[in-house]
Design a protein around this nucleic acid. Structure first.
Lengths: 188, 188
DNA sequence: CGCGCGCCATACGGGGGCGTATGCACGCTA
DNA sequence: TAGCGTGCATACGCCCCCGTATGGCGCGCG
């Protein structure tokens, strides 16, 4: 995983730091612990970065660049119709393993304003995309917005809430999807 | 707030620690920082507790005792019908300020198994209660479970997701509530 | 009055992280 | 081959925290 050869680039520091953030939270993101992970010493770190805050900023920039298009990209690549893309997003939200990093970032954002703003930008882009998809189902803007919010919430809910009995997991997933995707007479 | 007089009891240590957990995350919950908050020294702490882990355990026990009945209690006291109680819960979820502590606990739970279990117990109780309420609307068990999950997710979503334009907040809230509470022919 | 105990302050050693200063090996260039 | 910059190692001082050991103050009780 993190055992690539060659010199330790600035990017490898950032990736290792993001892995650590996802696994141990912000408190685990220290210069010396990550140095041990990369089998180097602090000397390497302070060559590539000014200080710890410099690393944190770089982590956030990288996360925003990568994650903005991660979910949206997979949806676009998975089908043509809004129905197809929404179904894929639901499936991803109930399975994806990249969510710990999302959670750690939101926890971090509760204390650092510049993180809060970055998370807000990503959320807005994702919500707008979901709104467009729900709008493609024939919902009026307000309802599309509400369903986008519920769908996006359920993504996090799956990983925040210690889910009920596992044997209900798949069934609950299907029923949630059905409720949010249903659009008929009297629904909007 | 934390400026009560008299001797610093074990309970005041726990409450101050929970406040700190909600505000600064688990990393902020240290013996000496909290001692400064209470205007005492570590001497007081190690009189009331064995060590830091002892405090953490006590915090979790207290949280589980208090929070298990917090939401449910407010719902029960707010009306007789399932509709009334659900509407109150929705309102609370979109306004409550006690959520930071919830979030910090779930972040903590991602790393400590005994916290994971406590959070899971609380979630199960709340979800079961929500299921009963949705069942009271005439939904079959599977759909009640799905809507309970969506409703509970939206509670956290409101505080995780940097919500869209504030002017849509109230409207989105109403539409989410309407969608989850609607039960008619073809709905279940 | 003195004694004990609850409650806390003070002092100490150990550890770990941050940031800086400096040393050192390698590759490239002249 | 002498020099130079890149990339990292080593070593140091500083701060903050944990846990323990010990001292001290006040108050109820005999």
């Amino acid at each position: 995983m993190a055992t690539m050869t060659g010199p330790v680039t600035r990017e490898r520091w950032i990736d290792a730091a993001l892995d650590t953030l996802a696994r141990d939270g912000l408190g685990g993101v220290g210069v010396e612990p990550i140095a041990r992970l990369l089998h180097v010493t602090k000397g390497s770190f302070y060559w590539h970065f000014k200080d710890r805050a410099d690393l944190l900023r770089a982590m956030l920039v990288r996360w925003e660049q990568v994650m903005t298009k991660a979910l949206i990209g997979q949806a676009e690549a998975a089908g043509e119709t809004a129905q197809d893309r929404l179904r894929v997003l639901f499936r991803l939200s109930f399975e994806k393993r990249a969510v710990p990093l999302e959670m750690a970032l939101r926890d971090w954002g509760r204390r650092e304003p510049f993180v809060t703003r970055a998370v807000a930008r990503v959320d807005r882009r994702r919500l707008r995309y979901l709104e467009r998809l729900f709008g493609g189902l024939g919902l009026e803007p307000g309802d599309a917005r509400a369903r986008a919010f519920l769908a996006y919430s359920s993504l996090f809910g799956t990983h925040i809430i210690s889910v009920t009995a596992p044997r209900h997991r798949e069934d609950t997933f299907r029923r949630c999807r059905a409720l949010l995707l249903r659009v008929g007479p009297g629904s909007p």
